[in-house]
Design a protein around this nucleic acid. Structure first.
Length: 509
RNA sequence: GGGCUUGUAACUCAGCGGUAGAGUAUCUGCCUUUUAAGCAGAGAGUCGACGGUUCAAAUCCGUCCAGGCUCACCA
């Protein structure tokens, strides 16, 4: 018998013993008079009144001493020590207590008191089991040394933490806290936008055509319609349809799916917020980005100064705004402002940048930026005025048709937001999408596809609009000081373990 | 995809050619104020998988599986 089965077997035996004692091991209804946090907050009053309280929670520690015993019970608000005496709770209750295992959900009825060693506890008058844990939780022990918590045998295996996130949440409060922060960040975005008269909407995840970004999609199939559908790579084109439809301020928070590589900052599904505002442009979007991010930092983590990887990142607005061309000049000395293909190509070659034969000067300029500038933008920086060539959905500048009104926000060397003065000229939009289609034919799997339905919508008239997208996961990483996206996703994508193979082999033996 | 690296008991780890180890957890006994409770004893492992070398493999070699770091690719 494997150890695993041995430990589980023992717990199953206890389950049976409880049943034999006519104890409901998984009762339907449970009574709780207060959360443990409330109990602790009312310590003095409860000791004075000797009032009976009922708490519930998971058993996190047990210390049995013959005819008495201690334990620690935790609910979501706090934990408290329980004290169980055989002569107080009676034989049957004490028997139930003895059949407790670490990880069981228990209900304790009792009165508040302070032990001889000074610990506020609850002295049980009645004990119950609310749900038995058949599988032993990993053992983590804590000790308080000089007021600091020292943890032993922490559940720290990264792979296990991701695969069994429920254990990570249960055993590592600091990791659970990441997801509390994440939730607060998202609800704070909502609060700011809702106060600003934005309407939250939901658009299709399953799309007959995908668009709004350069990326390879996931493909799925609808049986009844017998058509392939794509999981959205962005919400952009649907949100613009809503602007056309007369909603002046909309946003959507949701998952996008991109069938591409995975690394510390890319998960195949990730959360983005996209925001569209009629009668606004990319300058307004910069103001909005600053407001959302710096205000949220203050609201959620209490400061807009973040110390991360030994860098001090200052989210206090205003943030630097600089054009891509100027930043390239600043970091390399190279002046690409003339968009002269030969000149730019020569520079790329001299720096060892690989040249895609289909790339025009705009694409090359972007590559120079990515190679020499991106990683150096530690403080929040709006990189503005992108080449039109790489921005098929953004409006050109009035005085320079090679450049569009677009920005990307960089913090700590990586992209956090992308925004445009949205292209609303349907003739221009059609030409741009058609030239993307040509790139596709030349083998660019990430080029946009022509979405006739979207173009038709735009032909009815789309107001001048500013649009903005922010990567939520990366922002959560920044505020919670995590370097891996997996740490801020509850269930990051992992390769499945080949359990079936293992099991088959086991059975054969 | 390349390089480096990890995988041993439920958890955290040691062992790195000669009969599988420790602490915690679990079980048994003692124990009515403990708190990483204590003391005494016990059980628990296909040493990620499959091959190879060897008298002998957790240990050396190869392939594979799953992670991590990093570079490349990619928004």
């Amino acid at each position: 018998m494997s150890n695993d089965n041995q430990l589980i077997g023992l717990r199953k035996q206890k389950y049976k013993k409880l049943l034999a004692m006519n104890v409901q091991v998984y009762p339907n209804r449970v009574e709780r008079t207060m959360y443990i946090k409330e109990l602790i907050d009312q310590k003095d009053k409860l000791i004075e009144t000797n009032e009976t309280v009922k708490i519930t929670g998971r058993l996190k520690a047990m210390r049995r001493h013959g005819k008495i015993g201690f334990g620690n019970v935790e609910d979501e608000t706090a934990g408290i020590q329980i004290y169980v005496r055989k002569d107080v709770v009676g034989d049957e209750n004490y028997e139930i207590y003895k059949l407790y295992d670490l990880g069981d959900f228990v209900g304790i009825e009792g009165v508040a008191f302070v032990t001889e060693s000074g610990e506020f506890s609850i002295k049980a008058t009645k004990v119950a089991i609310l749900a038995k844990s058949l599988r032993p939780l990993p053992t983590v022990k804590e000790k308080i040394v000089d007021g600091k918590k020292v943890r032993y045998d922490e559940f720290s295996d990264i792979e296990l933490r991701y695969r069994k996130r429920y254990l990570d949440l249960l055993l590592n409060p600091q990791n659970k806290n990441i997801f509390i922060q994440r939730s607060k960040i998202i609800s704070n975005f909502r609060k700011i936008l809702d106060n600003d008269k934005f309407l939250e909407v939901e658009t299709p995840i399953l799309q007959p055509l995908y668009g709004g970004a350069n990326a390879r999609p996931f493909i799925t199939h609808h049986n009844t319609l017998n058509i392939d559908l794509y999981l959205r790579i962005a919400t952009e084109l649907y949100l613009k349809r809503l602007i056309i439809g007369g909603f002046e301020r909309v946003y959507e928070i949701g998952k996008n799916f991109r069938n591409e590589g995975m690394d510390k900052s890319h998960n195949p599904e990730f959360t983005a917020i996209e925001i569209y505002q009629a009668y606004a442009d990319y300058n307004d979007m910069m103001d909005l980005t600053e407001k959302l991010m710096s205000q949220t930092a203050i609201d959620v983590i209490g400061t807009d100064l973040i110390e991360f990887e030994e860098k001090k990142i200052n989210l206090k607005s205003p943030w630097r705004r600089a054009t891509m061309i100027d930043l390239i000049k600043e970091h390399t000395g190279f002046d690409a402002s003339d968009f002269d293909y030969e000149n730019i190509k020569n520079f790329c070659e001299s720096k060892g940048i690989e040249i895609d034969p289909n790339a025009g000067p705009g694409k090359l300029i972007t590559e120079i930026f990515e190679t020499f500038v991106e990683a150096k933008l530690i403080q929040p920086t709006f990189v503005t005025d992108f080449p039109k060539e790489v921005s098929p959905l953004a409006k050109t500048k009035p005085n320079d048709k090679k450049i569009v009104e677009r920005f990307e926000l960089y913090i700590n060397g990586s992209e956090f937001a992308n925004a445009f003065t949205e292209l609303n000229d349907p003739i221009d939009q059609r030409e741009r999408l058609e030239s993307q289609a040509k790139l596709r034919e030349l083998g660019d799997l990430e080029a946009n596809v022509v979405d006739e339905d979207f173009l038709e919508a735009m032909e009815y008239g789309m107001p001048p609009t500013g649009g903005l997208g922010i990567g939520i996961d990366r922002f959560v990483m920044l505020l919670t000081k995590n370097t891996s996206i997996k740490e801020v996703l509850l269930f990051p994508q992992m390769k499945p373990e080949e359990i079936s193979v293992k099991k088959k082999k086991k059975k054969k033996k």
